[in-house]
Design a protein around this nucleic acid. Structure first.
Ligand code: MN
Ligand code: MN
Ligand code: MN
Ligand code: MN
Lengths: 222, 222
DNA sequence: GAGCTTTTTTAGGCGAATCTAAAAAAAAAT
DNA sequence: ATTTTTTTTTAGATTCGCCTAAAAAAGCTC
């Protein structure tokens, strides 16, 4: 029941790639893990032997139930540590991912459950991603891309799908943060940029590229 | 400037063994690290190449200045994490060492300095051992073995030199903890056991073996 | 469906950290 | 000063995670 850091990173990467496409390719994994396809093939064989993945040569890969469970445990650790780093130690959004990439491999289950308590059992990490609970259940968070928000409807920013320092710089410049109330006031056909207000402030224009990474919650009519 | 977990464990072990005997033997290291002498020799060569130790075949080993500096950084991390686990997450003394053994290898310097701030820059870990500061300076703590305390003089327990669950069980049974005021009320020649009072309570008898692991601070007359 | 391109796997190797068995050096005993 | 014992090092393997180069399979294109 104890896996190497390397194996845990593979399992987590497979989990994330499965969200895009239910069958994960060797190349996609190699890209994600910044390694070579040949190395991935080697590792897939080992993960298969340990029953963490379904794998047949040339057919791509999928997590088994136990692989999925393991992935959720690692993600839980990653996100709880990120929350800790931001909320308790005052780190910025963009700094925490790398550190959490190490902390997520600390093995003590008791540690993570106590940390969860200490932090007040948060539902989401600093980027708005949901934190699986001790049983591996991921809170379902209703969110839609800001770009799909109709003009004139207010909605709260609940997550961002990019955590680069560059993007966070830009958000900071526009004074946009998780929780900010956003409203689209105008759309421009030419480059699909949008004009929005932040917390009812003056309108600012943001690119489609930025908007695509912002996710908001708004009441659905049904 | 980044070393493997294994190398860090060697450096820390050498540091601790140097406290006993300034020149550390291959066998002593193998015992401490639960590994084989042949493995130790291999590793010593590598640590020597990296200038972390002074090493000549058959002559034992000593940390260089940079080895010593590294050891203190690792010990700082270890003890700060132990403090965090006990004070913030409510772990018992005896549970934290093993977890800290992993956490001490998390590389971010910024993380550890912020953790230090968050914890209020503690001077000692939960077992009373001093925590080196960011510059690697170890607070000097005046302490003497309880066994050397004269009869009738009160002194405060400031550290214990054994962290086994068994010993902590026994301490808990006698309601002795770090900070308790202890006074020797009687000494018995036969087995060198001693009778003490804890916080001015009723006298209890403890073995020489237990007493040897308790360290107290008391005013020296000079 | 034959041929070209892309993806994936295999083959062979390397560095890190470990091991066992054997040799060599140092230390202790006689 | 030998001999014996203990300590330490060397030699040779193994496992893990990775690599490059080459082969094989799958997927496209005409
Ligand atoms: Mn992250
Ligand atoms: Mn990781
Ligand atoms: Mn400890
Ligand atoms: Mn350690």
């Amino acid at each position: 029941m104890k896996y190497s850091t390397s194996k845990e990173n593979y399992i987590k990467a497979i989990y994330h790639l499965e969200q895009e496409d239910p069958v994960v390719s060797t190349n996609a994994l190699a890209r994600q893990l910044a390694t070579k396809p040949a190395s991935v093939t080697d590792m897939l064989k080992k993960l298969h032997e340990q029953q963490l993945i379904h794998y047949e040569p040339y057919k791509g890969v999928q997590l088994t139930d136990s692989g999925n469970k393991l992935a959720l445990q690692i993600i839980r650790k990653h996100r709880l540590w990120e929350f800790f780093l931001v909320e308790k130690l005052g780190f910025g959004w963009e700094e925490v991912h790398e550190i959490a990439e190490e902390l997520e491999h600390i093995s003590s289950k008791k540690l993570i459950d106590r940390l969860d308590d200490f932090l007040g059992k948060p539902k989401t990490d600093p980027h708005g991603d949901p934190i699986p609970d001790a049983a591996g259940i991921v809170p379902k968070i209703e969110k839609r891309c800001l770009l799909d928000l109709p003009v004139g409807i207010a909605a709260d920013l609940i997550s961002v799908s990019n955590q680069s320092a560059d993007m966070l710089d830009l958000l900071r410049h526009h004074q946009i943060e998780i929780g900010s109330r956003l409203k689209i006031t105008n759309r421009f056909r030419f480059d699909r940029s949008i004009q929005i207000t932040v917390q009812g402030g003056p309108p600012v224009t943001i690119s489609e590229q930025l908007g695509a990474h912002l996710y908001v919650a708004w009441a659905t009519e049904d």
